[in-house]
């Protein structure tokens, strides 16, 4: 990881815009799948696959690679788009999302698609798997980093806190968790369904180092990941504050869009907005 120059940042923002619109397009073609989460995590995924992670799309099983574990598997459409644009498989294949015979299953299935590190869907067990990987690397004296992307609502599961406790016990400084703090879940707002706050203090109480970032500011995300690598003898949590449905005006902040499908008109409008966004980024940097 190196400092992000303005030129690189502009490229990353453009990539994020492309990933956003490709994600939404694949969900529209599939006629099902979650939308809000994938849109709000597009910037984080871009930062990870196009700057932070040590990886090689031409050699997906490269031993030296960092590991990115997606715990909340339902937002996988954005990971698929990021993987495709990074070069793991043809971008064209994104159109097969959720279709019969596809490698792009509704929820990620590691054995069938290069680039995926785990299989997930049922919430709450991704962090455990990431902890297992981080422990394994420590046992072998290896320097691979492990990143675990989680949703905020899955912090309601007991399994997460079992993993949080274990990571604290073993001082896993090769582990970074990133929570998509978009405040929504299927049935409503997280703080109404099951209050998570004070989330930061909870992780700190389990001996984690916690950073808060604007989840749509790619420079901030990258700098937080860099800071995380410098933290010694503690796992790090990055709380990425995001806007659910980011990039599509009529979807932003609305929990109803967690997993609701588009009408054809809504689809058209969403795509139009996201494509215009790409243009906006270019002009802003000019």
């Amino acid at each position: 990881m190196a400092y992000v120059h303005d030129e690189k940042l502009k490229k990353l923002e453009e990539t994020a815009a492309t990933i956003r619109s490709d994600t939404i397009e694949s969900v529209i073609i599939a006629k099902s799948g979650h939308i809000a989460g994938p849109l709000d995590m597009a910037d984080v995924f871009t930062a990870m696959y196009f700057h932070v992670l040590k990886h090689d799309p031409k050699n997906p099983l490269w031993e030296e690679r960092d590991r990115l574990v997606l715990s909340n598997g339902h937002i996988v459409p954005v990971q698929y788009a990021a993987l495709a644009h990074a070069g793991y498989f043809p971008v064209e294949e994104l159109k097969t999302l959720r279709q019969f015979g596809t490698r792009l299953q509704g929820h990620p299935h590691r054995p069938t698609l290069p680039g995926l590190e785990t299989t997930s869907g049922p919430l709450g067990s991704g962090l455990s798997q990431a902890v297992g990987m981080a422990l394994g690397f420590k046992m072998d004296g290896k320097s691979n980093q492990v990143y675990c992307l989680m949703s905020d609502a899955e912090q309601e599961t007991g399994n997460i806190w079992e993993a949080v406790m274990l990571a604290g016990k073993h001082k896993l400084d090769n582990l970074t968790g990133i929570i998509d703090r978009n405040n929504i879940q299927i049935d409503g707002m997280t703080e109404d369904i099951m209050p998570l706050e004070p989330l930061r203090e909870k992780y700190e109480a389990f001996n984690w180092h916690v950073l808060d970032v604007d989840g749509h500011n790619i420079r901030e995300i990258i700098e937080a990941c860099e800071e995380a690598r410098a933290i010694y003898e503690k796992p790090v949590l990055i709380i990425a504050h995001t806007i659910a449905g980011k990039g599509v005006d009529f979807m932003e902040f609305k929990y109803e869009w967690h997993s609701k499908p588009f009408t054809p008109e809504e689809a058209k409008e969403a795509l139009h907005e996201l494509r215009t966004l790409g243009g906006k980024i270019q002009s802003e940097h000019q």
Partner: peptide, 8 residues
């Protein structure tokens, strides 16, 4: 799940 990660 930790065992799954270790096996990975």
């Amino acid at each position: 799940a930790v065992a799954s990660g270790l096996a990975a």
